[in-house]
Design a protein around this nucleic acid. Structure first.
Lengths: 236, 236
DNA sequence: CCAATAGTGTCTATCAGACATTATCTA
DNA sequence: TAGATAATGTCTGATAGACACTATTGG
């Protein structure tokens, strides 16, 4: 049989294909805490449990996996998060009651204020503090996935300023530093933190300042390419 | 409908599932060059072209994606490579003529000498120098995948000694350094390279030495946990 | 001896850690 | 002015880069 004939008679249902989904682990930083977006499942299995946004690819709508995760996250937040990166693909025969199942997970970051799920009209999506997850009995292995994403963010905090995407467009250095400290799990020397950011020229200083009870802090914006910058030496 | 009824009547063929495969990018170092294992495709599509080892999951044989890639690599090499790590999942509607297709790729390393594909009896698998790939017209997007894996290995070379898994069990520091230089694409200071490995106590010195025309070099073995060690400061 | 490769000594530059000091706001 | 928070100055320590030097083999 030549390839043309093969393709004409090909039916992908013949293959031993697992269930395949795409999940988006969307984190943000709000009120000094790290939060993740959860949605209430409206379908079986694990109906009515909370889980991360995600679902199946739509062969009509999506040209790539990135399209799928972007579409799913936009459905729940109203916007496309400014930072989306593939985390890991998990596949085995026990994570889903329906049998062999694969999920490709993405880590995403956005500002809390930019998310329409904050609206009181939305009841099937909410930001949840990561410390509160153990009591929530999430769907499938989603709690494990969220911890995996958090580990990745910790690494990012050690050698980049990617966590800044979890902040509003304009933010202060003390805010960013606190977020990094939260992710890394220990205090950072203020001087070290500022030095490396200044030397790598990653931020744009604005004229604005905001006060938090003491001397007002300068607001900064990220430069376009700063998310891709990696320091040659880690913090911690 | 309750969950029990749902699961009893569930048929995964109802879903808009893409084709899903697992690929193993297996690299090694031999005769001063970086090589990747290719196998000749025996089935459509892209029949008779060369590509990386991989295939579909087998719901009977595999409990996880790692099982799948391990099984596929063992089929072609005779052993399970000592280093296997997930690289990336690529999914879109144009990489496979059959339509929407997803592949989860793993990067793997092993010693050239340990691979039974070197046997003259094997004609459907071969190690190919990475520089020779452009002339080979590989199947699907496999050339791109191989470059992605190579990029990841370059990063590993900057902050770990993971590339050592591409060498025989016993190897010399000049061998390892040359492999790192190949991956990074530039010369490393001999002193810097040795210092960091010694300080982190990553290798076991053997009594044996091998000569390469000058003063014989000491053979070393990796410690068990050394693959997981990351330096806090990069080379380069 | 020389050529070749392995391995060390040592100086410098860079950058994170520590921590004291100064600056700028509000009450 | 006191209290709080932001931002800086400056010393130390760790470690990579540079490069000269010594060591050990074969011919």
């Amino acid at each position: 049989m030549d390839e043309k004939t093969y393709l004409e008679t090909y039916d992908h249902h013949h293959f031993d294909t697992p269930l395949f989904s795409v999940d988006g682990l969307l984190y943000t930083y709000h009120e000094q805490q790290l939060k993740v977006l959860l949605v209430k499942r409206s379908n079986h299995p694990d109906k009515d449990k909370w889980g991360v946004p995600g679902g199946f690819i739509d062969k009509q709508l999506d040209n790539s996996l990135e399209d799928t995760v972007t579409r799913k996250l936009k459905e729940k937040t109203g916007i496309i998060p400014p930072y989306i990166e593939q985390l890991k693909t998990l596949g085995n025969n026990h994570r889903d009651k329906r049998g062999w199942s694969v999920t490709t997970c993405y880590t995403a970051l956005m500002a809390h204020q930019d998310c329409s799920a904050n609206s009181s009209a939305v009841s099937d999506a909410q930001w949840v503090n990561l410390d509160d997850l153990p009591e929530m009995d999430l769907a499938f292995d989603h709690e494990e996935l969220i911890q995996l994403g958090r580990e990745r963010l910790k690494q990012k905090a050690l050698y980049s300023i990617v966590p800044a995407y979890a902040l509003p467009e304009k933010f202060t250095l003390p805010q960013l530093q606190h977020l990094h400290e939260l992710l890394i799990g220990k205090k950072i020397q203020k001087k070290s933190f500022r030095r490396r950011i200044e030397q790598a020229d990653l931020l744009i200083e604005t004229n604005e300042k905001v006060s938090d009870g003491g001397r007002p802090a300068t607001l900064y914006r990220m430069k376009n390419e700063s998310g891709g910058y990696t320091f040659i030496r880690n913090l911690g």
